Simulated assay, not measured.
Amino acid sequence: MTRTFRKPPSPAEFEAIALAALNRIPAPFRDHLGDIILLVEEFADAETLADLGIDDPFQLTGVFEGIGMTHASISDSGQMPNRIRLFRQPILDEWISDGEDLEHLVAHVVIHEIGHHFGLSDADMHALEEQARQS
């Protein structure tokens, strides 16, 4: 169910949208997310932006941090859990400027970051997004 927002959602509402998007990931993928953590922050911190070579904090809507499945090994035990960080203000800025459905935009960012966890190509991420949209 798509909701129409007349004003930007609160941080709690935004997190609920992101969690709903995560829960719509098709089972074959969702079953292999493990203990991935989903965080919503207003903006990426300066260190993250510098590490990615990004000057404008509005240019980063999300990031996957951790060891993706294509690089994981049994010697990785004791590592921090993988996480997806969504950056609320850049996503809201894109939503306002492009007029795209907010829930679709958030789902797009969530799926893109999950795609990095699985080592998916852009075409694979697009197909996963279509499957999630049909759920």
Score class of each variant (00 low, 15 high):
Thr2Lys: 15
Thr4Tyr: 11
Phe5Tyr: 15
Phe5Gly: 04
Arg6Gly: 09
Lys7Asp: 03
Pro8Phe: 08
Pro9His: 07
Ser10Cys: 00
Ala12Ile: 06
Ala20Leu: 10
Ala20Asn: 05
Leu22Asn: 04
Asn23Ile: 00
Arg24Ile: 04
Ile25Tyr: 09
Ile25Gly: 10
Pro28Phe: 09
Pro28Ala: 05
Phe29Ala: 13
Arg30Lys: 14
Arg30Ala: 15
Asp31Leu: 09
His32Gly: 05
Ile36Lys: 04
Leu38Gln: 09
Leu38Phe: 08
Leu39Ala: 07
Val40His: 06
Glu41Gly: 13
Glu41Ala: 13
Phe43Gln: 15
Phe43Met: 15
Ala44Lys: 05
Asp45Trp: 05
Asp45Thr: 11
Ala46Arg: 08
Thr48Cys: 10
Thr48Ala: 11
Leu49Thr: 07
Leu49Ala: 07
Ala50Thr: 09
Ala50Val: 03
Asp51Tyr: 10
Asp51Leu: 15
Asp51Phe: 09
Leu52Gly: 06
Leu52Lys: 01
Leu52Ala: 06
Ile54Thr: 10
Ile54His: 06
Ile54Gly: 12
Ile54Cys: 09
Pro57Met: 12
Phe58Ser: 11
Gln59Trp: 08
Leu60Ile: 06
Thr61Met: 14
His71Tyr: 11
His71Val: 12
His71Trp: 10
Ala72Cys: 04
Ser73His: 12
Ser73Gly: 14
Ser73Met: 05
Ile74Cys: 11
Ile74Gln: 13
Ser75Asn: 14
Ser77Ile: 09
Ser77Lys: 11
Gly78His: 02
Gln79Gly: 08
Met80Tyr: 11
Met80Asp: 15
Met80Val: 14
Asn82Ala: 15
Arg83Thr: 04
Arg83Ala: 08
Phe87Pro: 01
Arg88Ser: 05
Arg88Asn: 04
Gln89His: 12
Pro90Leu: 08
Glu94Gln: 14
Glu94Phe: 02
Trp95Lys: 07
Trp95Ser: 01
Ile96Ser: 07
Ile96Glu: 09
Ile96Tyr: 03
Ser97Glu: 10
Ser97Arg: 10
Gly99Thr: 03
Glu100Ser: 06
Asp101Tyr: 00
Leu102Pro: 00
Leu102Glu: 06
Glu103Gly: 06
Leu105Gly: 00
Ala107Phe: 09
His108Cys: 13
His112Ile: 01
His112Lys: 04
Glu113Lys: 07
Glu113Val: 03
His117Ala: 09
His117Thr: 10
Phe118Trp: 02
Phe118Ala: 05
Gly119Leu: 01
Gly119Phe: 01
Leu120Asp: 11
Ser121Gln: 08
Ser121Leu: 05
Asp124Leu: 11
Asp124Lys: 02
Met125Val: 15
Met125Pro: 01
His126Met: 13
Ala127Arg: 04
Glu129Gly: 11
Glu129Trp: 04
Glu130Gln: 12
Gln131Cys: 12
Ala132Pro: 01
